[in-house]
């Protein structure tokens, strides 16, 4: 499904955090939201799934206004993985099963167990399925959270810093998985990132935020070191290594 943000104004109390943010996301695309700390990246994700209603503008999923949808309908359409998730004494299987909540009426069905099992095998989590979350590493926990969002069977996936605090191997595993989900299942992905090089390597499109406004929305070809330098306030150059853009701060 196509996701469209139309001139979003978002704020907390008397402070406007985002102003006139607009972009479109086609199915299968990965959009990386980039910008310095506190620029409103997480706020944008929270607005996209109506956790934080926009003051102006609209979020449209296939031309349907998200504010007209119920919380349940939104959860059936969008999977959201926040930056932090609590790790209680719930097994990975049961934690992933929660992703079926938007599709359930009263009780867990056999079909739901099958979907969870498919997701677990898809992500290679078989060994961890019956381990409690509080006994997992950061990378394992993040995979469980992504699996939970995937069993929602969403059309759009919103990921808030999916690779922060993960080691290189886990970063690659998770970003490869995101790419497969996007390309293989036509899921549109919006993810916020701090690691510019990883973002440039895995996303197809990039949205740069500065002071709550969109400075640039571009694809890989449209990347410019001027824009990145302006967003982060640090002069950078972009080197292409083996076909992947790498951002290097100039000093």
């Amino acid at each position: 499904m196509k996701l469209c943000a139309r001139d979003l104004d978002v704020g907390y109390r008397d402070r406007l955090v985002l102003s006139q943010v607009a972009f479109e996301l086609e199915p299968g695309e990965i959009l990386a939201v980039l910008g310095p700390n506190g620029v409103g990246k997480t706020t944008l994700l929270r607005t996209l799934n109506a956790m934080l209603p926009a003051r102006g503008g609209a979020v449209l999923v296939e031309d349907a206004d998200i504010l007209q949808m119920s919380a349940r309908q939104i959860a059936q359409t969008m999977g959201y993985v926040p930056q932090r998730s609590e790790a209680g004494r719930l097994t990975a299987f049961d934690a992933i099963l929660l992703g079926r909540v938007p599709h359930l009426h009263f009780a867990v069905r056999q079909e739901d167990l099958r979907v969870v099992d498919a997701a677990i095998r898809r992500l290679g989590l078989e060994e961890l399925a019956l381990r409690n979350l509080d006994r997992m590493s950061g990378g394992e926990l993040q995979k469980v959270c992504i699996a939970r969002a995937l069993v929602q069977e969403p059309s759009v996936l919103l990921l808030d810093e999916p690779t922060s605090s993960l080691d290189l191997k886990n970063q690659m595993e998770i970003l490869n998985l995101v790419r497969e989900v996007a390309q293989g299942h036509g899921v549109g992905v919006v993810m916020t990132m701090h690691d510019l090089s990883a973002a440039l390597r895995f996303a197809n499109r990039f949205l740069f935020l500065k002071k709550g406004r969109v400075l640039s929305v571009c694809d890989r070809e449209g990347l410019s070191s001027e824009v990145i330098g302006e967003v982060y306030g640090v002069p950078v150059c972009i080197e292409w290594i083996r076909g992947c853009p790498v951002v290097i701060p100039e000093n």
């Binding site: 799934n49 956790m51 119920s70 919380a71 349940r72 309908q73 939104i74 959860a75 059936q76 969008m78 999977g79 959201y80 993985v81 926040p82 932090r84 998730s85 609590e86 209680g88 719930l90 049961d94 934690a95 929660l98 992703g99 909540v101 938007p102 359930l104 009263f106 867990v108 959270c145 939970r148 969002a149 929602q152 919103l158």
Partner: peptide
């Protein structure tokens, strides 16, 4: 008891629960 899965979701964190459609 009807809200048992919603309570599980709240245990996973407010943001996660909201993302799962729990009010």
């Amino acid at each position: 008891y009807l809200n048992r899965l919603n309570l599980n979701a709240i245990d996973a964190g407010d943001e996660t629960a909201r993302g799962l459609g729990v009010r």
